[in-house]
Write a protein that binds this DNA or RNA. Sequence first.
DNA 1: TAGTGGTCTAGACCACCCC
DNA 2: GGGTGGTCTAGACCACTAA
Lengths: 229, 229
Amino acid sequence: MRSSYQDIKADVLNRIRQNIWPPGANLPGEIELAEEFGCARATVNRAMRELVDEGILERKRKAGTRVKSFPTRKARFTIPLIREEIESTGAAYRYALVDREVIAVPGWLSAQVKIPRNGQVLHLRCMHFASNKPYQLEDRWINLTAIPKAEKQDFEVIGPNEWLVREVPFSEADLSFSATSATQEIADFLDQKEGDAVFTAERTTWLDEDNITHARLYFSQGYKMTTKL
Amino acid sequence: MRSSYQDIKADVLNRIRQNIWPPGANLPGEIELAEEFGCARATVNRAMRELVDEGILERKRKAGTRVKSFPTRKARFTIPLIREEIESTGAAYRYALVDREVIAVPGWLSAQVKIPRNGQVLHLRCMHFASNKPYQLEDRWINLTAIPKAEKQDFEVIGPNEWLVREVPFSEADLSFSATSATQEIADFLDQKEGDAVFTAERTTWLDEDNITHARLYFSQGYKMTTKL
DNA sequence: TAGTGGTCTAGACCACCCC
DNA sequence: GGGTGGTCTAGACCACTAA
C-alpha cells in the first residue's frame, strides 16, 4: 500500500483530529512511519516538513516529532495588486493621481526608516476606485536616493505600487494593519464622515539595507481583509 | 562547487534583484540549473518549489519556470494565543469572563454558519487585559451540537480560545479583519469612547462539515497587527 | 507528442542535541 | 554517544500541457 506525501499528510491530520495523537503527543520516527506507510523515508520527511511549516507539528533532532501543544496554525495571505483585487470582484478599476511632489524627507519618516537626512523623497497621493466608488486612498513616499528613476515617472496612468512591483525588486517588507479614525481630509477622499473607522495598512519596503518606499493605505468603509487557515 | 538548496534560493533571488532575471523572464530548466550549480536535480527542485511557495516564481510543466510578472509575495502570520501575545510584550496577562449563557442559535448566526435550527449555542463574552489595561473583548459562540462538552466548562479561569485550541481540533477556519466603530457597550469594555475606531477580527472554525465556533475579537485602541514579508 | 516539472526511491552522510 | 531529523544523490517513472 504505497502512499504519497499528501496521503501521509492527510492521514497524520486525521489521527490528530481523532485524538489518536493529541496535542503534545510524540509521533513515531521517520523510519518507522516509512515502514508503516510503505514508502521511502524521504516521502515521510516531506510530509512532516510541510506539517511543521503549517504550524501543526514540532520537530527536533534526537527528540523526535510531536504535535504542537497549542496548534496555532499559520495562515498565509497575499497583498494582491489592488487592480487585481478589484477586478476579481467584477468591478471596474479606476486609478487617479491626486498629488505629486518632490520634497525633503519629513522628520517623522527619516526617523522611522533609514533615509539620509536632506535626502529627497517623492510624495504621492492616489485614489483607487471600484466601479467609480472610492476604494482606497494611497499615501506613498518613495526614496529618491535609492530609486532616482522614480522621479522621471509621472504616475498619471500607472499607480506607484504597480510600477514599483514591476520595476524595483525588494528583499524585505514590514506590514501592519490597524483601525484609525478618518480625518476630515481622508473622509472626503473616501466619501465618508470625519471620525469614521478606517481600515489602514502600512507598508515599508527594503532592498538590503536601503529603504525603498513607505505607504499608508486607507480603505473605504466596509473593507474586510479575509483569509483561510 | 556543491550548492545546497538554500544557496540556490539565495542565488536565484540575487539574480532576480540584479535584473539578470527580470519579472516575466524564463529560467533555465532544472537539469541545466543542476549542472550549473553542481548538484542533483532534486536539490534544484526543492529550491524552486520553495520560491514558488513564497510567491516569487511560477512553474508549469512543459512551459518551464518564470519569474512572476508581479511578484506579490506571500506573507504568513500566526494568530497567536492572546496570552502569549501579551506576555511576549512583557505585560502581565489577565483574563476575565463577562457573560456566559446557553441560548438557541440566533438567526444571524445560523444563517452564516451551518448549525441546525433549534440547536443550542454557548455564548461567552470575555475580556483580556495586558497589565490591567483592556486589550481585547472576545465575543464568542460555541456550537453545542458539535461540542457538547463545552457546556460543562465554566470558562472562569481558562478562556474559550485556549480551551478550544487544546481540546477541539479543527480542519479549517475563515478569518477576516476590519475596522468598526465602537458601540457604547464595546467602548465601555475597552475603555474608549463611542464611535472610536476598533480593529476587529472575526473567525469561524470548522471540523469537516460542522461549524464549531464563531468569534468576534475587538481590540483596544492602538492595536496593530504586524508581519513581515 | 515531446519536454517540462512532480514525485518517489534506496541509500548515504551529517548536524544537532537529549540522555 | 547515539538516535533523531536534515539534506543530498543518481536514477526512475509519471502527469501535465504547450506546441
